[in-house]
C-alpha cells in the first residue's frame, strides 16, 4: 500500500491498510460485513495522523474542504445516487466553458 505523508505513521498505517483490504475484499464486497472490523487499528493510526496534521497546520484546510463537500455526502450516501460531485463555493460566473 502507499505511504503516509507523515513517515512516523507508516508502520501503524501499514497494519491498518492490510486489515482493511482483507476486510473489504472478503466481507464488505460480498455483502457480509456487519461492522468495520479494523476500527480499533484505525484509531491507533488516526492518533498518529491527527498529531501530524496539527503539527503541519493542515487541519483547518481539511475542515474547509469537508464543509464544502456536504452536498456530496447527502447525494452519495443515498441508496441510489447521481453521477457528479458538486461544490457550493468557487464558481466564477465570468468563466468560459471549454471542453477538452
Amino acid at each position: 500500500m502507499s505511504a503516509s505523508f507523515a513517515p512516523e505513521c507508516n508502520e501503524v498505517k501499514e497494519r491498518y491498510d492490510t486489515c482493511f483490504l482483507k476486510w473489504y475484499s472478503e466481507k464488505f464486497i460480498r455483502g457480509t460485513a456487519k461492522e468495520d472490523e479494523c476500527e480499533p487499528l484505525f484509531q491507533k493510526y488516526k492518533t498518529c495522523l491527527t498529531k501530524a496534521l496539527k503539527d503541519k497546520g493542515i487541519e483547518s484546510m481539511i475542515e474547509e474542504a469537508r464543509a464544502d463537500n456536504k452536498e456530496n455526502d447527502v447525494e452519495f450516501m443515498k441508496p441510489s445516487s447521481g453521477a457528479k460531485c458538486k461544490y457550493n463555493s468557487q464558481e466564477d460566473p465570468r468563466s468560459q466553458l471549454i471542453s477538452v
Binding site: F28, I62, M77
Partner: peptide
C-alpha cells in the same frame, strides 16, 4: 503521489455504503 492517508472511514449500516475521507499528497 507520495502519500495517501485515510482521514476517516465509516460504514452506514442501513444502506451498506462505505464512506472514506483521504488526504493525497
Amino acid at each position: 503521489v507520495i502519500g495517501v492517508d485515510v482521514l476517516s472511514r465509516s460504514l452506514d449500516k442501513s444502506t451498506g455504503i462505505l464512506r472514506t475521507e483521504r488526504l493525497i499528497t
